[in-house]
Amino acid sequence: MGNYIFEVVKPGLTTTIQDLGRTGYQQYGVVVAGAMDAFALQVGNLLVGNKRGEAGIEVVIMGPTLKVLTNTVIAICGADLSPKLDGESVTLWKSFAVKSGQTLTFGKPLNGAYAYIAVAGGIETPMIMESKSTYTKAELGGIEGRNLQKGDQIPIGVPSTTVKAGIGLPIRQIPDYRSGRKIRVILGPDHNAFNSESIDRFLSENYKLTSQSDRMGSRLEGPSLSLLKGADIISDAIFPGTIQVPANGQPIILLADRQTTGGYTRIATVITVDLPYVAQMLPGNELAFEAISVEKAQRLYVEQELLLQTLSVAAGVY
């Protein structure tokens, strides 16, 4: 292992090590896990000269207090959780230098729920099934498969390039996580299990995020959706953004720690580029759904991918 970047003074609400997830093992019942907001993590990594899939520190709503142990460059992307370095506010979506002995803190959540600390050289925790992501229910990844605790020291690798501070994402590209936006979905694969009134209601009414939401999924509260038959189906594949509807008629959007298969009807799937907006919702926030075509969803994904590739070239990361 390389140097240590932080010592945890206060762990915050739920602070973990996450990369883009543990892919390729769902057939064995191993969940993907990974960053709730994959776009924010990838951008953060590029801003500090890392490859897009490197692990970072995921901070949730109430952030940690971290003592800096070595001089380096970091970036904080995603939610605005009022980060400060030695009491001075730092700019999100832009890399900045930190020095040994400084203290990084977080305060009031202003916009979004999940922030990501990317560190030049990446987080150097062990790879478990080709991922460093923490999945606490199975005690996999990160530091001993758990949330960070007081006293933990977080190891980092050696940067592959010379990293400069002050590199940022253009303002027009920074996501706005404010409540009330339309979340774009592709209907199906079980939308025919709902009557037409329920489909219309799903696409026209607002839903509110409940306090029962977590990394596994966002539980929504709003107009009930009626099924033509029962809510249960033979367990089948589920994906990031799958929207299940159990017997109570209230949608659940499946996220990073989702199970590998599911037995509830699937009314729709959130498109990839809109998943961060779902993940970044706070309890009480509202959203509405908009159905689009697979072709449009693919075009939007290609646009996002081109942005990330452009950032990769600009950062000298290939």
Rank of each mutant, 00 (worst) to 15 (best):
A237C: 06
G263K: 02
I238K: 04
V313E: 06
I171L: 12
P126W: 12
S89N: 15
T161N: 14
L225T: 07
E54K: 05
M216E: 05
N50M: 08
L300H: 07
I252N: 00
E7T: 13
Q309W: 09
A38P: 02
F239R: 06
Q298D: 10
R181H: 02
N195F: 10
A314Q: 13
T23Q: 11
I61C: 09
I238F: 03
L46W: 03
E205S: 15
S179K: 03
A75M: 09
T272W: 01
R181L: 08
G121L: 07
S196D: 13
A165I: 06
F289N: 07
L85N: 04
N71M: 08
A268N: 08
Q26A: 05
G122F: 09
L220M: 13
F202S: 10
G241K: 10
Q26S: 08
Y277L: 14
N111E: 15
G217C: 06
A118G: 01
F39L: 12
L255S: 01
A113M: 04
Y116P: 00
T242E: 05
E7K: 15
I156E: 01
R258F: 02
V31W: 01
S312R: 08
V48Q: 04
Q27R: 15
V31R: 05
A165H: 05
I243C: 11
F202H: 05
Q259E: 10
G217R: 09
N50F: 14
K84I: 10
G63C: 04
F39D: 08
I292C: 07
L255D: 05
A33Q: 01
F96G: 01
S198G: 11
V9C: 03
V270Q: 05
G157R: 08
L203R: 09
Y207Q: 07
I57P: 04
P175Q: 10
A33C: 12
K84V: 08
R219A: 07
G44C: 03
N147Q: 13
F194G: 06
S160V: 11
R22Q: 11
A55F: 12
R172T: 13
Q259R: 09
F202L: 12
V245D: 11
G107H: 12
E58F: 06
L169N: 04
I17E: 12
S211N: 02
T72D: 09
K51I: 10
I57N: 03
S211Q: 12
L311W: 00
G262A: 06
V302Y: 14
S226P: 05
N147Y: 14
N111T: 08
R201E: 15
A38K: 14
S198F: 09
L47S: 05
G2D: 11
A315H: 00
G188H: 02
I243H: 08
E295C: 01
N147T: 15
L225V: 12
D37R: 00
G107E: 13
Y116D: 10
F239W: 00
G2P: 12
Q250H: 09
E88M: 13
I117Y: 04
V73A: 02
P11K: 14
K84T: 14
Y301D: 01
K51A: 07
T242H: 00
I76D: 03
G284I: 08
K229R: 09
S133H: 11
Q280Y: 05
S100D: 13
D19C: 07
L41F: 09
T210E: 02
I5Y: 01
Q18A: 12
G230H: 10
L92H: 00
E303T: 11
L209D: 00
D190P: 01
L140I: 15
I267S: 08
Q280L: 07
R172I: 00
I61F: 15
N248C: 13
F239V: 13
K84C: 15
